[in-house]
């Protein structure tokens, strides 16, 4: 009974997300096109609306090429690990009051754990392809993801301290008066930059720097396996935007007066998520790519100290208002 309802929820959430992923690609091409004074996809369907479906069908029917000397089982499984890790994170995202597939008490940690598992897909793809470009891309990406994961995790610690919970639904409920971004602007900034680095997006897309590494870790992939990497990347953007929405922007909470109180909760959630996804594209169209040493220096020497300072200040402010008595 319970399992049945959960299974239906899983199917709905995953299929809706996959559809979103397809149209987020379209959204990106349109947004970047207009930012560069182009039109973006126009040919397939009205205003190119059927382009994602055409792309999907094309990827499905392409030949699946495996380079000689590749480590076959690992080559096969690497993109699958990536997609599974990302889709599994969907389980704890609260879309509106009382709706998340699994209401875990350790929701924040669960997402961090899965994003660290997702890093394996990149490293393994790079290694198993038996190609120097793939390998370099894989090494770069794993170092980058591991470094920025620390800043990402630390920036969420302040949120957990304020809401007194690592449960994502509780974090949203703690923001019913005002979103945490107002009192944690520093943490929000660190999170925004780290989430771009964590998902390997421009200007931190060094793992797939076209000018140096062809396409980075998925150079040797083709057909639907390449499509899986693509899906994992865009779904990861969706997850990271959703986490930022839940932890900093108040999740499903919206203004509660006049006509706004009739807007369904899910709409507030999606508006915020799409605003963040738009931010991703905006940054990509605006900034040039970072150099690798600058990227690492930024992560270790600026964002991790900033996040630590934020934790210290949050703790001081919170405890000066209600001191805890420690019994030894």
């Amino acid at each position: 009974m319970n399992i049945g309802i959960t299974a239906i929820k899983v199917v709905i959430v995953i299929s809706v997300t996959m559809l979103h992923v397809a149209y987020v690609v379209y959204f990106e091409r349109k947004v970047i096109g207009h930012m560069q004074a182009r039109l973006g996809p126009m040919r397939v369907g009205p205003h190119g609306l059927l382009q994602p479906i055409a792309d999907g069908i094309k990827l499905f029917f392409k030949e699946d090429i495996i380079p000689s000397g590749a480590d076959k089982p690992i080559f096969y499984i690497a993109p699958v690990i990536g997609v599974i890790a990302v889709l599994a994170s969907l389980a704890v995202i609260p879309l509106w009051e009382g709706f998340s597939i699994a209401d875990l008490n350790i929701g924040v940690l669960y997402i961090l754990a899965l994003s660290s598992v997702g890093a394996y897909s990149v490293i393994l793809a790079g290694w198993a392809s038996n190609s120097k470009y793939s390998f370099l891309g894989g090494l770069r990406s794993s170092a980058q993801v591991i470094s920025y994961e620390i800043a990402l995790g630390l920036s969420l610690v302040g949120i957990m301290m304020l809401s007194g919970s690592a449960n994502l639904s509780d974090i949203v409920r703690a923001q019913s008066d005002y979103p945490f971004v107002l009192i944690q602007p520093l943490a929000f900034f660190v999170f925004l930059v780290s989430m771009i680095a964590e998902t390997n997006r421009a200007p931190f897309d060094l793992p797939e720097a076209e000018s140096e590494l062809v396409a980075g870790y998925f150079t040797e992939y083709s057909g639907m396996r390449f499509g899986l990497f693509f899906m994992a990347e865009y779904a990861a953007m969706f997850i990271m935007s959703a986490v930022a929405t839940v932890c900093f922007l108040g999740g499903w909470n919206g203004p509660d007066f006049w006509v706004f109180s009739y807007v369904p909760k899910i709409a507030w959630f999606l508006i915020k998520v799409y605003a963040l996804i738009f931010f991703y594209f905006w940054i990509r169209a605006t900034l040039p790519r970072y150099r690798y040493d600058q990227l690492m220096g930024l992560g270790w020497k600026l964002f991790i100290p900033l996040a630590l300072v934020n934790i210290g200040v949050t703790g001081l402010v919170k405890e000066s208002s209600n001191p805890i008595v420690i019994k030894l």
């Binding site: 008490n105 350790i106 961090l112 754990a113 660290s116 598992v117 394996y120 794993s142």
Partner: peptide, 21 residues
Amino acid sequence: EFLAAVQIIVYAGAILVLFLF
């Protein structure tokens, strides 16, 4: 639950990746 999450974050996410490196 907490121990499980830390097991994945620390062992799978950090230490094993280092081994792999």
